Computed example of a mutant assay.
Amino acid sequence: LKPNKNYIIYCQSCGDIVVKDRKFLRVLPLPSENWSDLVEEWCCHPDPFARSTLHPQHGDCFVGDNFFLLNSGDESHLPASPGCCSDAGHHVSHSGSNLKSKENTRVICKRCKTMLGETVSSDTIKYYVTEVIIQPAEGSFSPIPRSQFVQNMVAQCLLELSSAKSTFRFTIKGDNGKTYMLIWLLNSDTLLVESLGNSSSHSDFTLFGDILTPTSGPAGTWNAVKVLYQPCIQCRNKELADAWENDMGVHPLKFPSETCLELLLVLGLSTASLPPSLRYMNSFQLTAE
C-alpha cells in the first residue's frame, strides 16, 4: 500500500467490492498490540498515551501485523445486509469505543456472508488480510484459490514478524477468543520444486504446496516456510496453550474463527502427506516442505 494511490478492496472469497476507489492520504504501520504494556519502561512520568487511541482519521490506513484499520466515516461501500456492520447498526457503550454485542462487531460480506473484519470503535473498521484483497483501482480482480491465499497470507505474517521481532512462536486465536493452534516457525528458507501447471499462481511465501489441486506441466519453484504446530481445539494441549499464553516470547495472532479452522485443515493435510515417521518432532506435528 502506498499513499496517494487509489485502491479497491475486494472480498477474497467471492470478489465482491468492499471498499470502492479509496485514496489513502497516509499509510502508517501500527505498533505491537501490546505496546502500551511497555510505556512505563519508556517514560519517567505518567503515561502520556493513557487517554489516546490509535484510530485512523479520514484518508488514513493503519497497517497491523495481520490486519489494517480504516475510518468508517468515509467508506464508499459499506456492507448492508442485516448481519453486517455499518455506523447506523453499531451498539456503542457509554465510552463510545467498546461495542456491547460481539456479534454486532462483525463486518460481513453482503454477497457471500464471509466475515471480513470487525468494528473496533464507532468510526474504525478492522479488515483481516486473510479475508480481503487490495488492488490498485486501475487493476482487475483475479481470483485465487482460498486455501492457497490463506497459506500465503499467514506465511507472510509469520515471516515478517519473525524477521522484525525475532519471534518464532505464535498462538493463533479466533475472533471468538478461543485458541485454535500453536505454531513454531522452524525455517523460512525452504524452496519448493514441483510439477505445476501454472507456477506463477504461487506468490511470495506459502506454508506448503497446494496439495488439494493436482498439477501437471513444467517444474515450478516458490519459497515456503516450515512450521511445527499443535492443535488446541476441543481442549487439546490446554496446559501448553496456557503456558504459551503467559510467555512474553510468544506472539498472538487473531483471525476469524472460520479462517483458523481452514488453516488447521491446511496444516493437517500437509502433515498427512508426510511418511508417519516424519510427522512429529518433540510432540509437535510437522508440515511437509
Rank of each mutant, 00 (worst) to 15 (best):
P143E: 08
P143A: 09
P143W: 09
I144Y: 05
I144F: 06
R146E: 09
R146P: 00
R146H: 12
S147M: 08
S147C: 08
S147Y: 11
Q148Y: 01
Q148S: 15
Q148I: 09
F149I: 08
F149T: 03
V150Y: 13
V150D: 14
V150T: 10
V150H: 15
V150I: 14
V150Q: 13
V150E: 12
Q151F: 02
N152P: 01
N152E: 15
N152S: 15
M153G: 02
M153K: 15
M153I: 13
M153S: 11
V154R: 06
V154N: 05
V154P: 02
A155Y: 02
Q156R: 15
Q156T: 12
C157F: 08
L158Q: 02
L158C: 06
L158Y: 12
L159A: 14
L159P: 00
E160T: 11
E160V: 07
E160R: 11
E160C: 03
L161D: 09
L161C: 04
S162C: 04
S162Q: 10
S163R: 14
S163Y: 12
S163A: 12
S163C: 03
A164H: 06
A164I: 04
K165D: 09
S166G: 01
T167N: 05
T167A: 12
T167I: 13
F168Q: 08
R169A: 13
R169T: 09
F170G: 01
F170P: 00
F170Y: 13
F170E: 07
T171S: 15
I172E: 02
K173D: 03
K173H: 07
K173E: 05
G174S: 05
G174F: 00
D175K: 03
D175Q: 06
D175A: 07
N176C: 08
G177M: 07
K178W: 03
K178C: 02
K178H: 10
I183H: 04
W184D: 10
L186V: 04
L186K: 12
N187G: 02
N187Q: 14
N187C: 14
N187F: 00
S188R: 03
S188W: 03
D189N: 13
D189G: 02
D189Y: 01
D189V: 11
T190A: 14
T190M: 11
T190P: 00
L191W: 01
L191Q: 10
L191V: 15
L192P: 00
L192S: 09
V193P: 01
V193M: 08
E194G: 03
S195T: 11
S195L: 05
